[in-house]
Design a binder for these strands. Structure first.
Length: 195
DNA sequence: TAGAGGATTGAT
DNA sequence: TCAATCCTCTAC
């Protein structure tokens, strides 16, 4: 069962970031399906400096974040890595959840090939890594998560409040006070979480 | 239109 | 610890 538009269009991006833990993210590239459990997320909102759309300033890069929830926001970081985000909230409100790491579920062999034969815990334990493993690049920017190229499903796994750890987000020191917001969520003890 | 820097990774 | 690498944004 794919998550519906109403899941993504809710107004609380932090709540959605928590609820995405334990869900399953899949891509279908020319008929090859790969995917895994989401074990690490971060929330981003136009209200804080860590976000590309801080102050609701729209640019050609972040325009997708201003669309309605349930779309993919993919952009290139450090000139070499594609980062995958899920757009949330209603049209005109720029918020998104960065998917930072996965636990492989389907197509591990194909993912390993895409990752230069890296395996096990190296496969999808970081935002750049999981994008490469799933074959996600900038052509996915703006794609709907309700269609069949990239989507998120219920996995049947139940994550309790006690299993969720909230910590400050990674790599946004430039955001000043906002860098301290505990908007990064991980599943306690899961070995696929990024370093 | 030029220059600086980034929501990272992997090798040294 | 540090280079790779190129797109995006800002300032001129």
């Amino acid at each position: 069962m794919k998550l519906s538009a109403s899941f993504y269009e809710r107004k609380d991006v932090v709540k959605i970031a928590r609820e995405l833990l334990g869900k399953a993210l899949f891509t279908n590239i020319r008929g090859v399906i790969t995917g895994g459990l989401i074990v690490e997320t971060e929330a981003y909102s136009y209200r804080e400096r860590g976000c590309h759309a801080f102050g609701s300033k729209m640019t050609s890069r972040n325009a997708v974040m201003f669309g309605s929830g349930g779309h993919a926001y993919v952009y290139l970081c450090y000139g070499m890595h594609h980062l995958f985000n899920v757009v949330t909230n209603e049209e005109g409100v720029a918020e998104a959840v960065l998917i930072r790491s996965l636990q492989p579920l389907v197509g591990a062999e194909e993912m390993s090939l895409r990752r230069n034969n890296k395996g096990s815990f190296q496969l999808t334990s970081g935002p750049g890594k999981l994008s490469k493993a799933l074959g996600i690049d900038r052509t996915f920017n703006g794609k709907s998560l309700l269609h069949d190229d990239v989507w998120i499903e219920e996995s049947g796994m139940h994550i309790t409040k006690k299993q969720i750890v909230a910590t400050p987000r990674i790599g946004i020191d430039y955001a000043g006070e906002d860098a301290k917001l505990p908007w990064r969520f991980t599943i306690t003890g899961n070995p696929w979480i990024s370093h």
